[in-house]
């Protein structure tokens, strides 16, 4: 079972809410710029698929799922 956080790269506006509220510190500031000039976060290891990052995202840019 793999826990996946998918970020819709061009939807992100870099508010940082997902980084702030991830209980496991999985997300961190990104270095690649998107079409609108924002730097979407990067996803590291240790996701527990709680979905918090997706729920706080004002741009509905995050999808979270578990995969076998």
């Amino acid at each position: 079972m793999k826990n996946v956080v998918e970020i819709d790269f061009n939807r992100c506006k870099e508010c940082g809410y997902c980084i702030r509220f991830c209980p496991k510190g999985v997300l961190s500031k990104g270095e690649k710029v998107n079409k609108k000039g924002y730097y979407p976060p990067v996803v590291g290891d240790g996701c527990i698929a709680c979905g918090t990052c997706a729920r706080v995202c004002p741009d509905t840019a995050i999808t979270v799922y578990k995969e076998d």
């Binding site: 506006k13 997706a54 509905t60």
Partner: peptide, 20 residues
């Protein structure tokens, strides 16, 4: 198994709101 998925009623439009 989705924990969070973009709602279906949403279109693909990106909002004009500012970040946050």
């Amino acid at each position: 198994k989705y924990v969070y998925k973009r709602p279906e009623v949403f279109t693909d439009a990106i909002t004009t709101y500012c970040g946050g």
